[in-house]
Each structure stands twice: as C-alpha cells, then as structure tokens.
Design a binder for these strands. Structure first.
Lengths: 162, 162
DNA sequence: AGGCATTACATGAAAATTCATGTATCGAGG
DNA sequence: CCTCGATACATGAATTTTCATGTAATGCCT
C-alpha cells in the first residue's frame, strides 16, 4: 500500500539484473538509505533533521570542533558551520569559545539540546536493536565487523588514535 | 595528502568512543561515504556528478522511468526530474515518450550518454575490485551478502514488524 | 459507465549543500 | 624573530535538493 516508487504492479519476471543492482557501492548506499529511512521518520516526527540528530549524537558524549562535527556528520565544513548557526539560534548547541588551539571552536550542547538528545538516543538504540534483530543469527555482527574494517582501512594513515 | 578534516595532529587524549562511533546506521553511512569517495573523485575528474553517474549506470542496461531512476539514484522524484532535464540538455539522455502506462516516461541513453557510460562502467568495476580485494578473504562476500539481505528485507514490506 | 483514491511526472518556492574565498592561528625553518 | 605553507572556521554566490502542489492517467468498486 505504501510501496516506495518505481515499478509497482509490473512484476517483470526475468528482470535482467541491471549493472547497478550488484555493484558494491550501490549496495552500501542503498542499504544505508533503507536502514536509515525508518529512523529518519522518527526524527521527523520529533521535528529534528538528520543533520541535527548527528550533531546531537556526537555532542552527547562531549565537546567537539566544527571540523570534527562535519566529518562525523558526513557533510562539508561550511555546511556544518551553517547548521550549527541554526542549532545555536534554536538553543540546542553553544559555541564554547576557543581552547589551546585558538583556531578551533569547541561546541557543546545546551540543556535543551541535552534534553532532546536524551529522548533520541534511546529511540536510536531501540531502532538499531530491531534492525539487527531482524537479521539471521550472526549476520548482524558480521556486518558490523565488515563495516568497521572497511572504515578503519579507509581512515588508516590519517586520523587514528594517538 | 587529502586528509579529510577533524582532529589530526592533536592526538585527542582519552577519546572516549562516542555513541555514534559504534552505532550501526553511522557505520553504514560512513562506510558508504568513505568507500565511495575515491570513485567519486574519478567521476569528478571526468566531469560527471554522482547523480549523473547513477543515471548512466541504470540506463546502461536498458530503459527506465523517472520514478525508477529516482529510487535507484537515492533521490526524490522532483530532484530526478530536474537532473534528467539537465542531462537531456547536455545530450546524455533522452525522453522516449510514454509506453503502455501513459503516465510513465521512458528514459534512455543517447549515443553520447552510452559512450560516457562505456568509459565509466569499467572504471567502476576496477575500483570495486580494488576495494573488495583489500578486505580479508571471505569478508567481501560476507559483506555483500549481508547488505543484500538487509536491502531485500526492507523492500519486501518488512516495514514495521519486529 | 461514473466516481474516487492512487500513481507518475512536472513545476515553483523554499531550504540545504557546496564551492571559492577570506581571515586568523599554528608550525617548521632560516 | 620572521616568513611561508598548512589548518580551522566563517561568509557569499551559485547549485542542488526538497517540499508542496498541480495535472493527467490508472485501477478499483459499485
């Protein structure tokens, strides 16, 4: 009844698999898209955008710089600067001034931001549990391990631990 | 040389793993982002945007409707309509008129579009091979299987049950 | 056949994202 | 100490994306 889009009643039997349907980068992007869609709907119901949620999730555990937030939020730095402007105006985050390195701005949650995050984090965990619980036994952890490996491999040589 | 952003030489003290770093939806999105980044750079070198590439890749194997292209391209339908307008103006795709269902518009590649796709598809395959080849034995196929399972589960009306 | 909710696509206004660039700070040499 | 290249963030213009909505075509149901 609420099928997304695309072919619907078509039911083409021998739909020759297009190139993209088996292309790994497409599988990754599509899986991410689909898995996130349901939770993003919960966010929308709370009046929180995806970008805002990512900022809340990162700052939930502590302060962070604009650059670090941009990287974690999967967006470019100017985009994050403007998002933070909006979130600051809305009273969710606060620029805490500069630390030892005076180029960097430290960001933190306000009380209102912390309260909003406190509502969303449990929802995120619950959704994640449902998502992983629907996979065959063991597959969930295998997936997560593979993803972590892929990420670590792409990041190594750069911003790791000290 | 093209380090992303974020903390670099700072050697953050005891960077307690933030919530998001172990959150499955973040792992999916970040892995997709990182894995795609290199190939997207190749696309940029060819003067092709990510959206354009996705259209070329889908139409490579045949015709498709606007809705199907939007779903495969991970964007909303109005976005795809406008993208197709631009690609048609650039001479890469063509609206082929309507078929049996007169609401649907069939899209196809022009010769120029086909030529561009013919250059990019092998590059995509090569990049994919490098990406998967860098993973431990067996992990590549396990990852792909898990992603396909996740996608299939989300597309079969497995919406809300848990 | 006629009505009615649904689906496919296009369009215009609004919002978000990115690119190119500017300013300030840091770090390594000379 | 001073200069030079790199890093961190902000800003403005241009592009892209999305939302809300309009039009046309379908399918179902009585």
């Amino acid at each position: 009844m609420n099928r997304p889009l695309g072919e619907k009643t078509e039911a083409a039997p021998a739909e020759t698999a297009g190139f993209h349907e088996d292309y790994t980068l497409y599988l990754l992007a599509k899986a991410s898209e689909l898995a996130s869609a349901e939770f993003h709907a919960e966010l929308a119901a709370e009046g929180v955008s995806v970008g805002e949620w990512r900022v809340l999730a990162v700052l939930w555990t502590g302060e962070a710089s604009v650059g670090a937030l941009a990287e974690a939020g999967l967006m470019k730095q100017p985009t994050m600067t403007k998002l933070l402007d909006r979130m600051a105006a809305a009273g969710w985050v606060r620029r805490l001034g500069r630390g030892g390195d005076r180029r960097r701005v430290r960001l933190g949650l306000t009380e209102a931001g912390r309260a909003q995050a406190a509502v969303l984090i449990p929802k995120a965990r619950a959704h994640e549990a449902r998502l992983l619980g629907a996979l065959p036994a063991g597959e969930a952890e295998a997936l997560r391990a593979a993803l972590r490996g892929l990420i670590a491999r792409r990041m190594d040589g750069a911003g790791g631990e000290a």
